[in-house]
Amino acid sequence: MERKTLDLWVGLFVVAGLAAVLVLAMKVGNLSTFNMSESYELKADFGNIGGLKARAPVKSAGVVVGRVTNISFDNASYRARVTMVVDKRYQFPKDTFAKILTAGLLGEQYIGLDPGGDEVNLKSGDNIAKTEPAMVLESLISKFMFDKAADGDAKK
């Protein structure tokens, strides 16, 4: 085959391949929605993190604002210490509430931030004081049963 035709085909092939990577990054992945380059770090201690994992999303009002970067166990307080990075564009007051929530019934766990009313915003390296631990499935089920029972009682 002519070298020029060959070059053309291979060129098209490489461009198509790179385009596929780009599609995977932008359309399939989160590269377009969340940019880690401009971010600040927050910490939060939880009594129980359930199934939360590193790289889990941090959301506020349903919008992804950051990611969990590290989870460790604090030997002094016997609590889980979660480190997360949050996009610089989003600022939260000092008394923000951090909860571990579950997407859907069996979905993955993420951190939800409920902004409070404080004048001062959280800075990089700050600790979120107000936290709520993860709902563990067992307690979730017992709560559900209890509610059902209470419902039944009420109807009677």
Binding site: V21, L24, A25, K27, V28, G29, N30, L31, S32, T33, R55, P57, V64, E108
Partner: peptide
Amino acid sequence: FWSQMQAAVDFRQDVMNGV
């Protein structure tokens, strides 16, 4: 379909590791 996908698929963790 797309938003849940984008929320769950991480560029470095998933796409780059696949590559």
